[in-house]
Every structure is written in C-alpha cells, then in structure tokens.
C-alpha cells in the first residue's frame, strides 16, 4: 500500500489572525510580557494543530512540523557541547536564514534536542508520528569549523546524532528520519555520509530509519545511498528531478519516500502526471511499500498553499496505488 508522509517542517503561522498565535506569543515573550512557560504552552497548541492539519489532509505519517525549531542547524547545535550558535547565514538557495553553529572544541551530545518534544507531540498525535533529526554530514557542512578536518567533524556529529536517536527511541519513537540536504551539493563526500549513517543505524534498534536528501539530485550516488543500512530513502524528485532517470535505470532495493510535490513553489502540481511517472518505476522500486511526500519541508510556502500541497500528496498516492 502506497502511503503518505511529509519531509518535516510546516508553516507555523498562517494568514488568518487566529493562525498567528505563535508569532504574537514570541513577540510578547521578546518584550518580556509573556513567560517562557506561557510561550511553551502556545507552542504546544500549535504543534497539536499542525499534526491535526496534516492528518485531516490525508497524511498517514506526519511530523510535529518542527514548530519549535529556530532552524534545522542551531536547534541541534544548542544542545551539543563544543558548539556555539552565531550569526545568521543563508540556508542553501532558499531566501531564509539559519544561525550558524561554530565549532570550538570536540562536538559531544549533552542533552536531548528533539526527544522531549517528540514525546509531547506523539502524545497528541492520535497515530504514528515521524521524528526528524538533521544529519551529521549536513550539520558539519553548514557549521563554521576553521581548521577541523571534515571526516573528523562529521564523525563527532555522527556520534552525537546517534545518541539523539537513542534518546528518541527511549522516548518511544519508532520512525526516525535523518535529513541530509548537504549531500546533494557535495555528492563526492558520499563515503563520509555512509560512515555516519552506519554509526546512527547502530543505535536505531527496531526503529524504522529513513535518510532524506533534498534541495537537489542524487543521481550520481544513488547506488551508494540504496546500499545504506536504512529502511527507507527519501528523495527530492522536483529540484532533484535528475534522480528520476537514475531510478529508472538502477532502481532501488529499499522502499522510497518519493518527494514529488513541489514544496518550493505555489504552482499546483498535477497528481495524474506525477503518479504516471512513478508507476513507470514499477518493478524497479518497491513502490507498494513506499511513501509519497513533498520535495522538502513545507515551511517555504504560505500556510494555505502548504495545506493544498498536503492534499496533492494524498491525491498522488491514491492514483499511484490505483496504478500498481
């Protein structure tokens, strides 16, 4: 059965005033008129709302929308030792910014980054919920670490993220995704990525583990990725549309998350056309155990458009299932 999921992030506010509670709360917190406890309460109500919104649109395996993350890098860095969080840097080719982690000493896991949040989100999820962590290769690539050899740095981040995966398992998470967008920019580093995934996989226990790459294609390294000890491989097939051809040629032994709905543009995708392209991979890819998803996190879209994209994911999955 073809299923549906998302990549991770979701717009935390919308254009309707009642959808802007979190924005107002953060502004009040910054002014000192709202306590941290009150802010966390509002954050949690938005987490609940975002999960419900995904389910209502037909997403079988939602996430917490990363509503509590400042960004995908500093959210982890601030819980690690050996790393300080510094100024704003542009995040890939998006017109958004992240606070750059600066590595000062050995990188070590200190305390959970997302495990506690996952515990709450899961308690209100009314069904399966996917936990997401930023992968060690991307954390190392986007950090500032003058003079540190990259293999060593990726290794330290891998140990730290493996411990986060252990903490997530302790919190009850059995579906865990590792995001590695940076590998689409430097595919020649795939050996580093593979090593770090082995480190993480050693802590996964019985959990289902997914590696997701986005913001580009992985056509040249598809074989390396499908050989990894993961249960699912997530692919951006929009910005990384060159991966389609590699899939048609080489196929994949692992089930995929097909990131086919464009999460970077408001243009309405055509589920019929996309499902047809995916059906063509029949025999090459275990489609029946695969997922359909947006091409990357949905937070680059306005909330209303993100909702529409969720429905397009569900429509595409139905058409794909029917075509098998």
């Amino acid at each position: 059965m073809v299923s549906t999921t998302v990549v991770g992030s979701y717009p935390r506010i919308g254009d309707a005033p009642e959808e802007q509670a979190l924005r107002r709360a953060i502004a009040k917190f910054d002014e000192g008129v709202l306590t941290e406890k009150e802010l966390r309460k509002i954050e949690r109500s938005v987490v609940r709302e975002v999960i419900q919104e995904q389910r209502a649109a037909g997403i079988a395996l939602p996430t917490d929308g990363q509503v509590t993350w400042y960004d995908s890098q500093s959210h982890f860095a601030r819980h690690l030792s050996g790393v300080e969080v510094d100024g704003l840097v542009r995040y890939f080719d998006t017109n958004t910014y992240y606070r750059q982690p600066v590595v000062g000493g050995p990188v070590r896991w200190r305390e959970p980054s997302v495990a506690d949040e996952w515990r709450y989100a899961s308690s209100v999820a009314e069904g399966p919920l996917k936990a997401v962590v930023t992968g060690p290769y991307t954390l190392a690539s986007l950090a500032k670490a003058d003079g540190r050899p990259k293999p060593e740095l990726v290794g330290e981040f891998a140990d730290a993220i493996a411990k986060e995966v252990r903490a997530l398992r302790g919190a009850g998470a059995n579906r865990i995704q590792v995001d590695e967008p940076a590998i689409t920019r430097n595919p020649q580093d795939v050996a580093l990525l593979s090593q770090s995934l082995e480190t993480i996989a050693s802590e996964k226990g019985k959990a289902w583990l997914c590696l997701f790459t986005f913001f580009g294609d992985v056509a040249g390294i598809l074989d390396d990725l499908t050989a990894l000890p993961v249960d699912n491989l997530g692919l951006d097939l929009v910005q990384g549309d060159r991966t389609w051809k590699a899939l048609a040629g080489q196929g994949s032994r692992v089930p995929l998350t097909l990131g086919v709905i464009d999460a970077r543009n408001t243009r309405r995708d055509d589920p019929g056309r996309i499902a047809k392209a995916a059906v063509a991979l029949k025999g090459k890819v275990p489609l029946g155990e695969s997922y359909v998803s947006p091409s990357n996190g949905l937070e680059f879209l306005p909330r209303g458009k993100a909702r529409e994209k969720l429905r397009l994911v569900a429509d595409t999955a139905k058409l794909l299932e029917a075509g098998l």
């Binding site: 717009p11 506010i13 919308g14 254009d15 958004t96 992240y98």
Partner: peptide, 12 residues
C-alpha cells in the same frame, strides 16, 4: 503577492 512565509526567527 503571496501569504506570509518565514524568513528566520519570528520574521515573516
């Protein structure tokens, strides 16, 4: 003109 999208932090 689109709806609001996040730039960073609490800026949209």
């Amino acid at each position: 003109v689109s709806g609001l999208v996040r730039s960073y932090g609490n800026r949209y």
